[in-house]
Design a protein around this nucleic acid. Structure first.
Lengths: 147, 147
DNA sequence: GTATAAATAAAAATAACTTTCATTTACATG
DNA sequence: CATGTAAATGAAAGTTATTTTTATTTATAC
């Protein structure tokens, strides 16, 4: 992501294009694994000279609220983040072994909201969907190990 | 749930049928909202005389591991639990307003594992799916409020 | 009944976040 | 370009859900 592009996204959200925010975005764009707040912090504070961990938390939270980045669910219940170029409705296939995230468009839930509405009488507002497993590479590696 | 039924489930899992475990199970069965560990704790400690909160956490964790109960995802990232009579593969429709949980069988993801496998080369092992919104009752209430 | 491994209590510890408030900075405006 | 202002950040302290530890108790197999 070009810096100017990042600045544009931030301004559209009504957020100031600060060096810290741009650095957090730059850290996540192009990263193919999900990262925790302190991992982002460790990666960018070298380049920035200094940045507080609470600032990183705040920025990640803002970006997630604004849907610029996504939260990834993990069994350890810590917060993880991932930025996906895909702006359409999509979900993530997450590797349990190497943390790689791959997006996929097939949601499979198109009709579900209607079905739930008509069967329960309620109203569907959102859904969480995340598929986990082993990415191609880790899947291969595991087969080798099993040999 | 009959107590003897609970004891049977526990023994099948290789767990001792202790009063605390039975009480936790009894608390959750028949409950239609999801509960946190300390909510369960507050409900059962009256009846048990005394029980430590760590014990409740441990029991809930064991039961969740064993799939006797399910974890419910919430925006506050705390742990919530729900026991569903439904033993088949199913998911939950969770009310954002009153915490009610309704299960539904339609998964919609039957073909997804195969599609992901063939498009990425990886292997799907599990998935998280939770639908959120307003249950029938809260949906009605909200409409009334809006009037 | 008794031995034994499993379960629990109680207290302390952990760690992931959050809050607070004083200082700095982006940027709209003149 | 200078400058006022709200927004952003740093630093330190605080919060709180959850976990760990270790000594004691208890379910259950024999």
């Amino acid at each position: 992501m070009e810096r100017e592009q990042g600045a544009l996204i931030l301004r559209r959200l009504g957020l100031k294009a600060t060096p810290r925010r741009l650095e957090v975005m730059q850290c996540l764009v192009g990263e193919r694994m999900y990262l925790s707040a302190d991992e982002v912090w460790n990666r960018i504070r070298v380049r920035l000279g200094s940045i507080g961990l609470p600032t990183v938390y705040r920025i990640l939270d803002e970006l997630a609220e604004a849907r610029v980045i996504t939260r990834i669910f993990s069994a350890d219940r810590k917060q993880y983040f991932f930025m996906c170029a895909n702006q359409e409705h999509h979900h993530h296939f997450v590797c349990d072994s190497c943390r790689r995230v791959v997006d996929f468009a097939q949601c499979g839930l198109e009709g579900l909201a209607g079905e739930i509405a008509s069967s329960t009488g309620g109203r569907v507002l959102s859904h969480i969907l995340q598929v986990n497993g082993l990415c191609a590479e880790c899947s291969r590696t595991e087969s080798e190990v099993a040999r």
